[in-house]
Amino acid sequence: MTVSALRTPEDRFENIPDFDYPVHYAEDLPGYEGLRASWVDAGPADADRTFLCLHGEPSWSFLYRKMMPVFLESGARVIAPDFFGFGRSDKPTEPETYSFDFHRDYILALVERLDLSNITLVVQDWGGLIGLTLPVDEGFRARLSRLIVMNTALGVGKSPSDGFMGWKNYAAATPDLPVGDLLARGTPQMTDEEKAAYDAPYPSIDYKMGTRRFPEMVPISPEMEGVELSLKAATYWSDEFTGASFMAVGDADPVLGPPVMNALRETINGCPEPLMIEGGGYFVQEWGEPIARAALHHFGDL
């Protein structure tokens, strides 16, 4: 495919703290030829289970740095992709390139390329909006075993909360989104080095088309792309999913906090009471180590 895109210079990632994991690239994924995709692939290639960690917006795979060591401690493999427009992956510059299916099909293509199996799907924000629809695809469904879900929703054609509409309006009015400051706003423990890591993928506003487009793409009206898939996914999670699940919720999140997550929990067959992270914000992976440990103890991995 021919897509206009920018590539963040590698030197922008030279001083990323606590994220020294093997980075892989591909420019030949089916349907994405010429676009460079990036993902972290850590742990044994022959591990008997894989954690597939999907970030949201405007973050990147760096968001999982506090959870990954716990997953790796259990002997598992961890795959943490960067969506196009984020992290080390290429950043398409035209708004029409960005669509629900464009990003969803990328994850399906990557899972197929890596031939992942016994997947524990780990999702938050857009990682959940997209990730929770993946089992609609029968091929992915056969690879899926478990779910860890945090502060997210299914895009079923209505706004999840008033807080989301406030965020959408703010993002629309702020084309040069201050990514590091935004993530730090609800994460008081974040260091200046971590804030800089979240800003690293974006040398200028020209690289931020993804951060502008993703809020616009959330399927909040019945006619929007992704709604049909999300409704099918809701049926899958409630009627067909039989695996183990774990939910963690940042209780200080005004966008996709406890009310939204309680509704989602009712959709997931067998989902236990959530782990509430007191004071946890929207990017709840920043409280990730205790979440990961609680999830793995729940699953019996640790």
Rank of each mutant, 00 (worst) to 15 (best):
F13Y: 14
D137L: 05
G250A: 11
D11M: 05
G166T: 12
R265N: 14
D253V: 03
V284Q: 03
G270D: 08
A26P: 02
F214N: 13
A197P: 07
R146K: 04
L29R: 08
A171F: 15
T152G: 10
M67S: 15
S204P: 05
L110G: 08
L256C: 09
G43C: 11
V284P: 00
R77Y: 05
C271L: 15
L63A: 14
E112T: 14
L229D: 14
Y236R: 05
H103D: 01
G85S: 09
R141P: 08
Y25Q: 04
M1E: 10
Q124G: 05
T152S: 08
S145L: 05
A200P: 02
D28S: 12
G166N: 13
P219G: 12
T93D: 04
E273D: 15
P69N: 13
D253S: 04
R113N: 02
E240R: 11
V78C: 09
L114E: 04
M224Q: 15
P188Q: 09
P22V: 03
S4I: 04
N151E: 07
G300E: 07
G31E: 06
Y282A: 07
M261P: 09
H24E: 13
L231I: 14
F83T: 01
F62H: 15
M224D: 13
N169G: 06
F164Q: 08
E216H: 06
T120W: 00
V70R: 01
E266M: 10
P258K: 07
Q124Y: 04
S221M: 14
P9M: 02
P92V: 11
V122K: 00
G157R: 01
P81G: 05
G56T: 06
D251A: 04
E112V: 02
F19H: 13
I130A: 11
Y25F: 15
D41W: 06
M247A: 11
N262L: 13
Y25D: 01
G85C: 05
L256D: 06
G157Y: 09
P30F: 09
A184H: 08
E94I: 00
Y236T: 08
R49W: 03
R88N: 06
R265M: 12
Q189P: 04
P44E: 00
D46N: 14
G155K: 07
S230K: 08
A173N: 15
G128S: 07
D101V: 02
E194H: 10
T211F: 07
R213N: 06
T211I: 14
L108D: 03
T187M: 11
V122E: 00
D20Q: 12
Y202D: 02
A76I: 14
V78L: 04
R141K: 12
I79A: 03
D181R: 12
D181Q: 13
A172Y: 10
D176E: 13
E96H: 05
S4F: 01
L52T: 08
R185Q: 15
E57K: 00
R213H: 03
G288V: 11
V227L: 07
L52F: 14
I16R: 06
G270R: 03
G157W: 03
Y98G: 03
F19E: 07
E112D: 15
D251S: 10
D101T: 10
P219R: 09
P9D: 09
V156C: 10
E194F: 12
A173D: 14
L72C: 01
L231H: 05
K168A: 15
M276C: 03
